[in-house]
Amino acid sequence: MTDALTTTRRPEPTPGIPAPNRSLAARGRPARRRIISVLKHTGLIIICLLMLYPLLWMIASSLRPNSDIFTSSGLFIDTFDFDHYPTGWDALAYPFSTYLLNSFLVVLGSVIGNLISCSMAAYAFARLRFRFRGLAFVAMLIAIMLPIHVLIIPQYVFYAQLGWINTYLPLILPKFLATDAFFIFLMVQFIRGIPRELDEAARIDGAGHARIYGQIMLPLMVPALATAAIFTFIWTWNDFFTQLIFVTKPDLYTVPVALRSFIDAQTTSDFGAMFAMSVVSLIPVFLVFLFGQRFLLRGIATTGGK
């Protein structure tokens, strides 16, 4: 690892970042640099192939006749079968777009909720000196230490009393109430990495906490916010259990629940269609990650610290 670090440092792909170590890198002999660069890329490409394999296999399986799926772990396709996509799309009680749309709603609400509520709570924990801060922090962490399986029944009873079963409120509302301690803690760590001088400077200028939070912290923590948004998106998109329990009306089903309803262990199921729809349901998450990761690059290094 250190070996790689001692060698090259290319200019950052993001504009505006100086390439401070170019002089250092230039000291290495070009031939050696090239060899190490080739090695590095070869290593990365091998790792990437291992990472890509399951996705490629899923795509291959969605194009195979059902009888070939369980006998081939390779990627080679003997006979192409494109039917799984149209059949899978219409196989369930509603077209698959219904489930995609439902999942989008839940995910969108969750992302917005987490971003607002967790960043607020994180600001308080990282920057404010208030009474019971330590205690509150401990309470926040303890709250995520119980497994969902013993909480789900009391939660169901609670939401049922409120008449919220078969709405997305049990899935979305908790996010607006900062119940995802993971993201609060994540943002706390990021805020603590931002030099205090910045907000103290603003405070001298007479800015209140609301302004410091809104105008200084939020722009500076874009990478943390992007991380939280991307993770919330992916985790909510893939979350099966709570979506299964709190939503029982088929027209409100989300993607993970819909995908499971292709399969029945006791009889024959259309696995090809399930694979096809699994591939379809991966497209949004992959796009979100591809698009969202641009924001991971922004940070104090590019916007502040001057």
């Binding site: 607020m120 404010l128 208030f130 109430l177």
Partner: peptide, 11 residues
């Protein structure tokens, strides 16, 4: 303390 009450209210 006051600000914390606001920022932590959702939580």
């Amino acid at each position: 303390n006051k600000a914390a009450a606001v920022f932590l209210a959702p939580w």
